[in-house]
Design a protein around this nucleic acid. Structure first.
Length: 587
DNA sequence: TTAGGGTTAG
């Protein structure tokens, strides 16, 4: 066989390599045939495949091979950078580029090298390294490369530096659809969903901004829907849905999965389920089921969550998200035994969130010993949220010892938020232990307690209005406060008395009532009442869990004013109608 | 020969 024929033969074997043994044999033949040095293209292709092979020994072997080369080429380096960036230890990719993994002189990196390194810094959330790589992009003179700059933008966004991501975007002279998608997704996931939506509207208004023959694609839609879901804006969500239809993207299963999530989080369970049923059964993925089960759960339909879970085809294995969604549904519907049954039959290892849901489920049901036993027998130490869950259960059932224990753990873990103190103080107050109530208050004062601000949104005619507890920022605040006075007098006739035990301040009863009266969700509802025609459904989104008093008030308003009120709090939906809530006061 | 963007979670 001539040299080139041998090389062609090896080349043809390359795509068929699978086992580690085959890779090692191939390596041996490269060595013995002399092609390792004589055929750098073949060598780099082999190295690339080896470094990406899923076998755990493959990547170390690729690095060994790289080290054995007297003068590695840029492509050899890139293969290793790529493999390391995709590995469980992406930081090693950065060490390699910095020359700390190879003793020999490094070949000069190119745009591709930087692309892989940026992927690695994104996976490490290493903003500092992303900045350094940005400098390297400029130094190497490869800053006109759309793909590289998109990767750079994405890396900034994934490291949480949205300002720099935006700046890269703004300074790019050519942007393709992936560039837009990258910033869109970065903003949507980086707690700037409103900016994401503004960017989407800019793209939707004139996608002449895109290179010719390029259109928004399913990634654009998924990212935009994720922003709508976070904001809870049904109007924007429906606009994105219509937009997707125009481009024939509404049949795409990933778009459908995002639509299910969006409609559910924007308060429309029926639309979410319509989308789920519109997907052909054989096209439904695990995520489709997870999103639909979660939709039932958020809306308090635990029985339906269980039913859908049982109906999952056997070819789709439930994952941790599926179980969490089902458990959540059981929790919100008070289905204790079903929840425990599902938890005990889990076929994946439960994580902190699964335990959290079970502890909440047991705690609400008054099974505090079991809840506590669950916490201390978990295979990992409980986190802050879990102790807060237990503290909440202790408060609900007036168990002082457990509340104290949980509060001590919270202090140990460095939690210092007002809610913890309020719960502990309320347990003492329920037992008339006023000295202890005072002691908690003193501790609060000493510790400079962090207040988690409560705020609510409501969408009226497509405009979002934001309210913070007791604020007077809204242009119509005087009308809103007058409406609240009217509300209080009308629901008082139905027997309303303020539930002031949720307020812990060193203030008198009347001031406590004041503090409660202007909770953000009440401001949002009052505004909704004066800004919409009679009978229209009011939709409110709250960042925290709804408080007991607001829950009572919302029920009474729904009766006194003949309005359906839908409140999405941090955990679920409450639908108030004719004096009742869909959660049946179990939340 | 090798590069960029995405959904579900207490």
């Amino acid at each position: 066989m001539s040299v080139s024929a041998a090389a062609r033969h090896l080349e043809s074997l390359l795509p068929r390599l699978a086992s580690l043994r085959q890779y090692l044999q191939f390596h041996a033949r490269l060595l013995t045939s002399g092609h390792l040095g004589a055929h750098p293209g073949l060598r780099a292709r082999f190295l690339d495949r080896l470094a990406l092979s899923p076998h755990p020994a493959a990547l170390p072997h690729a690095l060994l091979l790289l080290r054995s080369l007297p003068t590695p080429a840029t492509n050899d380096l890139n293969a290793a950078l790529r493999g390391l960036a995709a590995s469980p230890h992406p930081a090693r990719s950065l060490l390699l580029l910095a020359g700390r993994l190879l003793p020999a002189l490094l070949p000069r990196p190119d745009a591709l090298s930087l692309s892989f390194a940026l992927k690695a810094s994104a996976r490490c959330s290493d903003a500092h390294t992303t900045v350094q790589l940005h400098a390297l992009v400029l130094r190497l003179g490869v800053a006109a490369d759309v793909r590289l700059l998109t990767t750079l933008l994405d890396s900034y966004a994934k490291c949480g530096d949205l300002a720099s991501a935006r700046k890269v975007f703004d300074e790019m002279t050519v942007r393709d659809v992936a560039t837009w998608n990258s910033l869109l997704a970065g903003l949507a996931q980086g707690t700037e969903p409103n900016l994401a939506l503004a960017l989407f509207h800019r793209l939707a208004d004139s996608f002449q901004e895109l290179p010719s023959r390029e259109e928004p694609n399913e990634v654009t839609i998924v990212a935009a829907l994720s922003a709508c879901a976070q904001i809870g804006s049904l109007k924007d969500g429906m606009y994105v849905h219509e937009f997707a239809k125009r481009f024939g993207l509404d049949r795409n299963v990933r778009v459908c999965n995002s639509l299910i999530d969006m409609y559910s989080k924007c308060g429309s369970l029926s639309r979410a389920l319509d989308v789920f049923h519109s997907i052909k059964p054989e096209d439904r993925t695990l995520v489709s089921y997870n999103a639909a089960i979660q939709a039932h759960s958020m809306h308090g339909h635990g029985g339906d969550s269980l039913r859908l879970f049982d109906e999952m085809p056997t070819c789709i294995e439930p994952d941790g998200v599926t179980y969490l969604a089902v458990l959540c549904g059981c929790n919100h519907s008070g289905l204790v035994d079903d929840g425990l049954r599902v938890f005990n039959s889990m076929r994946v290892a439960p994580n902190m969130k699964h335990y959290g849901t079970i502890v909440d489920l047991l705690g609400r049901a008054g099974r505090l010993t079991e809840a506590y036993d669950t916490v201390i027998s978990m295979p990992f130490p409980a986190d802050i949220v879990l102790w807060q869950t237990l503290l909440g259960a202790a408060k609900m059932h007036g168990v002082v010892e457990l509340a104290e224990l949980a509060a001590n753990k919270l202090a140990e873990l460095g939690s210092n938020v007002d809610g913890d103190y309020v719960l502990l103080s309320n347990v003492y107050a329920s037992k008339a232990r006023w000295m202890d109530v005072g002691r908690v208050r003193d501790t609060m004062r000493r510790n400079d307690v962090r207040k988690v601000p409560g705020f609510s949104y409501t969408e009226i005619d497509g405009v979002m209005h934001k309210f913070i507890n007791g604020d007077k920022e809204h242009p119509r605040w005087q009308e809103i406060y007058r409406a609240l006075d009217d509300i209080v007098s009308r629901i008082s006739e139905l027997g309303y008395e303020p539930e002031t035990s949720n307020v812990l301040h060193d203030i008198g009863e009347e001031e406590k009532q004041y503090a409660l009266c202007y909770h953000s969700e009440k401001l949002a509802i009052a505004f909704g009442l004066i800004a919409t025609p009679p009978g229209e459904t009011l939709r409110v989104i709250k960042n925290l869990r709804i408080c007991g008093d607001c829950h009572v008030v919302a029920k009474l308003i729904s009766k006194a004013y003949g309005r359906v009120i839908v409140i999405r709090d941090r955990a679920r939906f409450h639908r108030f109608e004719d004096g009742q809530c869909s959660c049946r006061d179990y939340w």
